[in-house]
């Protein structure tokens, strides 16, 4: 009885728990498009997480390059909290 519990019931419960949790915490956040300028190569695009927007103190960068909302230095520089 005890062996069955350890070998079948508990692992089955663990599987159900993990699969259930995966569906329950399904990530619905949407990534957004951002742009950065590489000298000599021009504007490049990349996807960043929604947390990168026009507010916040930390600049959103890819490598050393600042990310912008549009492929234009005059557009909003993206930041995050």
């Amino acid at each position: 009885m005890k062996t069955n519990f350890l070998k079948i019931v508990l692992p089955a419960f663990a599987i159900i728990l993990a699969v259930g949790l995966a569906f329950a915490t399904e990530d619905n956040s949407v990534d957004r498009l951002a742009y950065y300028n590489v000298p000599g190569q021009g504007w490049q695009s990349t996807m960043v997480q929604e947390s990168c927007d026009d507010s916040g103190a930390i600049p959103c960068k890819i490598g050393v390059y600042q990310l912008y909302e549009e492929p234009d230095f005059g557009s909003t520089q993206l930041h995050k909290d």
Binding site: P11, A14, I15, A18, V19, L21, A22, F23, T25, E26
Partner: peptide
Amino acid sequence: GLVLSVLFIYTATSKLVQ
């Protein structure tokens, strides 16, 4: 082993769902 398997099943399912 049980804790690790929950972690791996959780992350694998999350990836497969999306």
